[in-house]
Simulated assay, not measured.
Amino acid sequence: MTEREPLTARRVIEAAASVADRGGLAAVSMRNVGRELGVEAMSLYHHVANKAALLDGLADWVFGQFTPPPRDADWREAIAVRSASVRTVLTTHPWALGLVDSRANPGPGSLRHYDAVIGCLRRGGFSTATAARAFSVIDAYVYGFALTERNLPFDAASGANDFAAAITLPTDEYPHLAELVSTVTATGDYSFAAEFDVGLDIILDGLGSLLADTDVRHRDERRDPGH
């Protein structure tokens, strides 16, 4: 007889992720996770207190999948690596979008990740307040892009041209929209997914300019402390 692998909190959370991958977050229940593991639901309560704790652990598991900003890179490169990872995880596990920032009890994985991102920005020269704003702007973009990508009525990597070709846009009624569609799809290889890096560069350019302006202002204040 093959000995069954003992249950652990980690195994329970990983099983919950598998359930969510197949059926969405609504499918995550103690019964379904127990079925995934081949045990009775009651066995899970030795490792997670209740469904709320299960969802807390699942959210923390998601944060554990994110690549933190590499410490050996400058802030811009490090944030780009981290942002690309977040987008990949959120598109691989679409149910995570509605979960990761909704839990009232952040776990160690999420706290470590937050601390790593803020630390990256602080090492890059951002003040604490500006780092908080930068973090918010970056994640608004990354999460928003992943949400849009998930909900598009065509394949984000290669389906935009076929979708655009199937829509008739009268140029007299929608001149600007028609111009935009014809321009971006003119080459026949437009990819919405490929726009992620372009948009992220715009965000990081803006944050870099903000950082430079702040540095100049601080230098001016040190030269002329009376103003």
Rank of each mutant, 00 (worst) to 15 (best):
M1S: 14
T2S: 05
T2I: 06
R4L: 13
R4E: 09
E5I: 09
P6Q: 03
P6K: 09
P6C: 02
L7H: 00
L7M: 01
T8S: 15
R11Y: 11
V12S: 00
I13N: 00
A16W: 00
V19S: 03
A20Y: 01
A20G: 12
D21V: 02
D21T: 14
R22V: 01
M30C: 14
M30D: 08
R31E: 15
N32T: 07
N32G: 05
R35H: 09
E36H: 12
E36Q: 15
L37A: 07
G38E: 05
V39Y: 03
E40Y: 04
S43A: 15
Y45W: 03
H47A: 12
K51Y: 08
K51A: 05
A52G: 11
A53V: 02
L55V: 01
D56G: 11
G57D: 05
A59K: 07
W61V: 00
F63G: 06
G64K: 07
G64T: 04
Q65R: 15
F66A: 06
P68W: 01
R71E: 13
D74V: 08
R76M: 09
V81T: 06
V81L: 03
R82C: 15
A84T: 08
A84G: 15
A84K: 11
S85Q: 08
V86C: 11
T88C: 15
L90E: 04
T91H: 09
T92L: 12
T92M: 10
W95C: 00
W95V: 00
L97P: 00
G98F: 04
G98N: 08
L99F: 13
D101S: 12
A104N: 10
P106Y: 05
G109W: 05
G109A: 10
Y114W: 06
I118W: 00
I118L: 14
C120T: 09
G124S: 04
F126P: 00
F126K: 03
S127F: 11
S127P: 11
T128P: 08
A129E: 12
A129N: 12
A134S: 15
F135W: 09
I138E: 01
D139K: 07
D139H: 13
A140H: 14
Y141G: 01
V142H: 01
V142T: 07
L147Q: 11
E149T: 04
E149G: 07
R150Q: 08
R150K: 15
P153N: 08
F154R: 08
S158L: 09
S158C: 12
G159W: 07
A160V: 02
F163P: 04
F163A: 14
A165C: 13
A165D: 15
A166V: 03
L169S: 07
P170G: 03
P170H: 01
D172R: 13
E173H: 14
H176V: 10
L177F: 12
L177P: 02
A178C: 09
V181F: 10
S182V: 04
V184H: 03
V184S: 07
A186L: 13
F192E: 12
A194S: 13
A194G: 07
D197C: 04
V198G: 10
L200R: 01
D201V: 04
I202K: 12
I202P: 03
L204H: 01
L204T: 02
D205Q: 06
G206K: 06
G208N: 11
G208D: 13
G208A: 14
L210G: 11
L210R: 10
L211Q: 10
D213G: 08
T214C: 10
R217N: 09
H218Q: 10
E221C: 06
R222Y: 11
R222P: 02
D224Q: 12
G226C: 10
G226D: 09
